[in-house]
Simulated assay, not measured.
Amino acid sequence: MSAPDRIVVRLAAPALFVGASADGTGADTDIVTDAHGLPYLPRHRLAARLSEGAGRALTVAADLAGPAGQVFGRSRSHGSGRLLRLGHAVLDDDVRAAVARALAGRAEPERSTLRRAVTDAFTALESGTAVGPDGAPVPGGLRTHRILLPGPVLTAALTWSVPPGPEHWRILARACLATTQIGLKATRGRGRVDVRLAGPDGADPHAETLRLAAPPGPVASDEREEARA
């Protein structure tokens, strides 16, 4: 069975992936997009959420603390000390290729207009007003947020700096299962996600993640004797 080579993020609720869009959308809080106007989840944010998920998983699997530090780095490190290597979580190749072809050779301002339309197709604007202690709206507190609509599936390439062991896969799979929200304002129901591991063999990502997350099975007596020899 082939090892997973990517992480799949399925968005189940609107999410705020705050950042700068290609052309700016006029919202108080914009959404991060690539040069073609397509939303994506930056690799460092995905890694941070997975690291938090690993922390939650350790509450019931303290024996994986060592592998977790190796996989995600210690003290939220994003440097070379981590075994895990992630790409940005992006839309599928067919979508990105189609948008790239549509933009190819376009001159301004047509190119910017089309690119903005691409962003609009995946996002929406939400407005809200800050509320004071008395429950009344705060004057001047109206804000507009650009959100990513639910439905898209984002995929991040997955590699390792050195070959991982079963315990590294185990903590990564458990971190994926424990990561259920991504983005800002999660307490308001935003950014609900399913995060799973997927491989090139087409196996079901949910089943594959559960398989890798499972604790090791009991070792047969003959295998223990062989290990001692």
Rank of each mutant, 00 (worst) to 15 (best):
V71F: 11
F72D: 10
R74G: 03
R74N: 02
R76N: 07
R76C: 00
R76G: 05
S77G: 08
S80L: 08
L84Y: 01
A89P: 11
V90H: 06
D94Q: 14
R96D: 06
A97E: 13
A100S: 13
A104T: 12
E108N: 06
P109A: 05
R111W: 12
S112F: 00
T113A: 15
L114M: 07
R115Q: 14
R116C: 10
V118E: 02
A121V: 04
T123W: 00
S127I: 06
G128R: 15
G128S: 14
A130K: 12
V131T: 07
D134V: 08
D134S: 11
D134R: 13
G135Y: 06
G135H: 08
P137Y: 08
V138H: 08
V138N: 02
P139C: 06
P139F: 10
P139L: 09
L142K: 04
L142D: 07
T144Y: 11
H145L: 14
L149N: 12
L149D: 13
P150Q: 05
G151F: 04
T155R: 14
T155W: 00
A156W: 01
A157S: 15
L158E: 01
T159C: 10
V162C: 01
P163H: 08
P164S: 07
P166K: 09
E167S: 10
H168G: 02
W169C: 07
R170H: 07
R170F: 03
I171S: 01
R174D: 04
A175E: 01
Q181D: 07
Q181K: 10
I182W: 09
I182F: 01
G183H: 01
G183W: 03
A186H: 02
T187F: 10
G189R: 12
R190L: 15
V193L: 05
V195Q: 03
R196D: 15
L197T: 02
D201F: 05
D201S: 10
G202V: 08
G202E: 03
G202A: 07
A203F: 04
A203Q: 09
D204E: 11
